[in-house]
Design a protein around this nucleic acid. Structure first.
Length: 500
RNA sequence: UCCGGUGUAGCGCAGUGGUAGCGCAGGUGACUGUUAAUCACUUGGUCGUAGGUUCGAAUCCUACCACCGGAGCCA
């Protein structure tokens, strides 16, 4: 194939010239005397027109299947009728490999099938859009911290013990010793923060929790800044600034990708500082307040009506299906019906549970951790991420610093994303007093021996400091408006799924 | 771990006790501007597995397996 191949996204600059492209066959339509090949190369998709007069190429064009790897030579022609604005009038066609049995069609597939074919599913436009946005988020994170003088620290993945309870970690045999895959870089990061001031780590992290939900992976990426001389308000500002930056960068560079994902950008455009900041205690008051109760009841009533409307629409679609003649119309309707059925079932289930949630909120007791239901209720009251701070000590980790103004709570902050995406950030100011930390570890029944190095940080120039972790995949899911986290990472690791 | 749901052609689904079906994909043919092209014909099945009930089971019962969703936990 020609060395001077042009990328499809650059084709418009070559109007009227003969060029070569390389790529994969993404779609094909043939007529008696003309064939249309849709070719993608990772930078774009272009329609290539092959006329019957072009004997060899036309014959080849009529034979190759989806995802065949091909080289195409042709003349670029700007054309209103073409999708990307440019077309290629084919003069030569070279088949690197003809594929007859590509398993993924340009249509709906089931989750299990797609997950088993994840290595091929990645080629679909939707998955490519998600991966591009993920890449932008990663770059944006690195730029944000670099601009603020943070030094990136790579913390170890093999870890001698657990930071917060060994039951949720993956054990690994390390020359006969039992060690674990890291679930956070935080403790090591604290050491680095005492060396460099502002640091962050960004890498994979592992949780062996047996969670089978749309929000959980067993292997996911987390960015964790850790800042010396920082108090809780500094951390909240940092998290808020980071999230605004991430959303702004995606909006600036990925309008087309968001459109391809059917992601309404309007909710993202509202993501500007300042975010609402409430304490846990205020959150509990909000949950229990009569105003919230009324709002939730009104929401329940509205959703009940929505359910009735959906059910009516479902019946209407089923009538249309019975009347539909064309096969693909039937299929399209069938798919719409299936989606609507699932939505109706989900909403129905939700509505069944809702009165219990509402009652749970009204009677929520101070001291309990906020669960998914409570988070959902709180985020529904706002259209921006909310920062919830100062949780009860009992539900948080040993290294979090108690609030001097109210020792029942710690100086932590969780950021809850809107639109039901839940917790994307968790962090805290750390306990910087040696005695207080030792006392807390005693109270939790922890053996201090493996943590001596960590305690050393409080013996040799301790300072107020803190940090947080932001989950990359949950952020991708929120920004892209995805229902499930499994599409946010190239090869998701889920409980009970490790292939491919 | 607990609760709920689903397993029928390569894929998406219908079929609730009486001959295994539809659409898409694949194949053959027609068609010079298609955008999920259209039209005609056509290949393709151990109905998740094992047992049971029945004259007869995709359909009913039991167990198991796989997958999905939710809870707990969390990012």
């Amino acid at each position: 194939m020609n060395e001077d191949a042009v990328l499809i996204r650059d084709l418009k600059a070559h109007d009227g010239r003969e060029v070569s492209i390389r790529g994969w066959l993404h779609g094909r339509r043939t007529s008696g005397k003309i064939a249309f090949l849709l070719v993608r190369d990772g930078t774009g998709t272009v329609q290539c027109v092959v006329e019957a007069a072009n004997g060899d190429a036309f014959r080849v064009a009529s034979e190759i299947g989806h995802e065949s790897s091909i080289g195409v030579r042709g003349t670029v022609r700007l054309d209103e009728r073409a999708h990307g604005g440019a077309e290629l009038s084919v003069t030569g066609l070279e088949v690197v490999q003809n594929v007859a049995d590509y398993p993924i069609a340009r249509k709906e597939h089931g989750v299990d099938f797609l997950m088993t074919h994840r290595h091929l599913w990645l080629r679909s436009p939707r998955q490519c859009a998600i991966l591009r946005i993920r890449d932008t988020l990663i770059r944006s994170i690195q730029a944000f911290f670099a601009e603020r003088g943070f030094v990136r620290i790579d913390t170890p993945i093999l870890s001698p013990g657990a930071a917060e309870g060994a039951s949720t970690l993956f054990p690994v045999d390390y020359f006969g010793e039992k060690v674990f895959l890291a679930q956070t870089g935080q403790l090591y990061l604290e050491a680095a923060a005492m060396a460099l001031g502002r640091v962050y780590c960004f890498g994979p992290t592992f949780r062996a929790e047996k969670s089978k939900t749309r929000r959980h992976l067993t292997e996911f990426w987390m960015v964790e800044p850790e800042v010396a001389w920082a108090g809780l308000p500094d951390l909240m500002d940092l998290a808020e600034g980071l999230i605004c930056r991430l959303v702004a960068d995606v909006l600036a560079g990925h309008r087309a990708d968001l459109a391809l994902l059917d992601r309404d950008p309007a909710p993202l455009e509202r993501i500007v500082a300042p975010f609402p900041r409430i304490t846990y205690t205020e959150a509990v008051e909000q949950l229990r307040s009569p105003e919230t109760h009324e709002r939730l009841q009104a929401g329940l009533e509205a959703d009940r009506q929505r359910l009735a409307a959906d059910q009516a629409r479902l019946a209407d679609l089923e009538a249309q299906l019975a009347a539909a003649k064309k096969g693909w119309q039937q299929e399209k309707l069938g798919r719409e019906i299936a989606a609507l059925r699932e939505a109706v079932r989900e909403l129905g289930q939700d509505l069944e549970n809702r009165p219990a949630h509402i009652e749970g909120a009204r009677t929520f007791a101070w001291g309990n951790d906020l669960g998914g239901d409570e988070e959902t209720i709180l985020t529904r009251l706002h259209d921006r991420p909310i920062l919830v701070s100062r949780y009860p000590r009992g539900v948080k980790a040993f290294y979090m610093k108690p609030d001097p103004a109210d020792p029942r709570v710690v100086l932590n902050v969780d950021v809850l994303a809107p639109e039901g995406y839940g917790e994307i950030v968790g962090g805290s100011q750390r306990e910087d007093s040696l005695e207080a930390l030792q006392e807390r570890m005693r109270a939790e029944g922890m053996d201090p021996a493996p943590y001596e190095w960590y305690l050393d940080l409080r013996r040799h120039g301790t300072v107020p400091h803190g940090g947080f972790g932001l989950g990359l995949e949950r952020t991708v899911a929120w920004v892209c408006g995805l229902r499930h986290i499994r599409e946010t990472i190239p090869f998701p690791r889920l409980m009970g799924r490790i292939y491919p």
